[in-house]
Design a protein around this nucleic acid. Structure first.
Lengths: 274, 274
DNA sequence: GAGTGGTCTAGACCACCCT
DNA sequence: GGGTGGTCTAGACCACTCA
């Protein structure tokens, strides 16, 4: 059985050539230098390059992309890898694929972006939408987690947690009130609240093994006069609540957030696909 | 080159054996008969069976599932197929996978399911959560689209649209009020409202080129006494509004829906990843 | 260092679209 | 009927985890 001796072996380990179509269209491109660390997976590089070409307008909305076989030849990768890349594009709503016909650039394109399914900090989302994010801390105190809170975070009842209360701003206007709880053992030794800086997300990222990878979010409609503070509160007391627990590797819960978005001040978009 | 003569060829076409672990746990199960039409893909059957076993409690939350190699042997499929199945489970938040360690049943479990990012009909979501979906039409009438409506659907102002008003039920209880608009030219010749049947989604699916592939959804918190009808309305008038336009192939808008979910009666979950 | 998931390849056949 | 995407297999090597 089994022919093919020298098969297997993915892309040569040393191949640090950035994403680029091999015999492709333009002449030798400047090759986007990969910063440090491990190179992204092949299918990610291919996908990134296809994104670049889409942005560059190589295929207009509705236009058909090259066939999988053609892309496979262009990038010198297997068709399976091309297919994985195409899946990424589809998931981001950049292309549509029709069985027996081909893959097409979607008419939407840039419009999307603020998708809820992608785990990003609120401030990052605001920035990406072209606004100036801001943050106003109201308090940052250590407390003892009550039973309910401990359960959400998967820590023993009575554990210490850092409780935060913040207002999230966009172009100087309050768009949300955020209540966060972070288990004390997630924080580094000698931590003081000042270390948090602007984004808790960025802070957890720096921790290495506390980097949030997933969040399980629940959505609710809430009306209350008890949420928020000062005159930033909306008159009607109407909020969209994003109640989420963030998980790092190992399935470790690193933060529980309840973000009350003031209805009408923040755009919530979701691209739904199947 | 190329050994293996009788390779390739997926599962024997005739194999209508429902999803079941081959040498697996329980003794020969009654094999859920697949109704009509094409059998689901192998990886879907495997995935469905794993879901069944998860529901049955074969692996408790946090517990490790068998390795990919083991599952590959159990189901007599390639590891690649097992991996595709696992991806489905992950996307639905039922399992988490840790590189070098294994796949684990999530601590969330059943709660999830209603993942917003997956485009499914509300009735399908209800059914998948183990409840009995229902639908009560209040009206189905042809109207002239106003400018705003026409723009959302990408049809000329003044076009005819079918306007629907429905209540969505779960186990006999109203969980949402739905207002839908479908361009008349999406409907087949000789259409009468009775053709709609239970799910508009299923109806559009039958149309071939009207099958919804994407939806761009917006979320809002709404409080109003004008939504809904009869005594099914909640006292506080609080709703979570899912305002979405469905697109079929070619980027054609085929339906605009505003679904007002009664706060507290429907679980909205999103698995956010990066 | 053994075990487990992550990535990638080459090849095969099927289902669907279009001309 | 030819072309295109959809599914599946077998095999290989790599990266990570954990005892």
């Amino acid at each position: 059985m089994v022919a093919r001796a020298a098969a297997g072996a993915a892309a040569e380990p040393g191949s640090d050539l950035g994403p680029e179509p091999v015999p492709g269209p333009g002449p030798g491109s400047p090759a986007g230098v990969s910063p440090i660390g491990a190179a992204p997976a092949l299918h990610v590089r291919v996908s990134d390059d296809l994104k670049r070409r889409l942005r560059a307008g190589e295929w207009q909305p509705g236009e058909r992309l090259p066939t999988e076989a053609e892309l496979s030849a262009q990038y010198q990768v297997s068709r399976a890898t091309v297919r994985t890349s195409m899946k990424l594009l589809q998931a981001q709503g950049l292309t549509q694929t029709r069985h027996g016909s081909g893959s097409y650039a979607t008419p939407f394109g840039d419009a999307i972006r603020a998708g809820l399914q992608e785990l990003r900090s609120v401030t990052a989302t605001i920035a990406e939408q072209g606004h100036e994010p801001g943050m106003a801390y109201r308090s940052a105190t250590f407390r003892t987690a009550d039973d309910d809170e401990a359960q959400r975070l998967g820590v023993p009842p009575g554990s210490r947690v850092l409780a935060l209360e913040r207002a999230i701003l966009s172009d100087g206007q309050v768009v949300a009130f955020s209540y966060d709880w972070i288990p004390a053992d997630v924080l580094p030794d000698g931590f003081v609240p000042e270390d948090l800086g602007g984004s808790t997300f960025a802070f957890l990222d720096r921790g290495g093994d506390t980097r949030p990878l997933h969040a399980v979010a629940e959505l609710h409609s809430v009306r209350s006069s008890q949420i928020g503070w000062d005159d930033a509160r909306p008159a009607d007391g109407l909020y969209l609540l994003l109640d989420q627990v963030h998980f790092a590797s190992q399935g470790r819960a690193v933060m529980h957030s309840r973000i009350y978005f003031i209805e009408g001040r923040f755009q919530f978009m979701i691209l739904r696909t199947r």
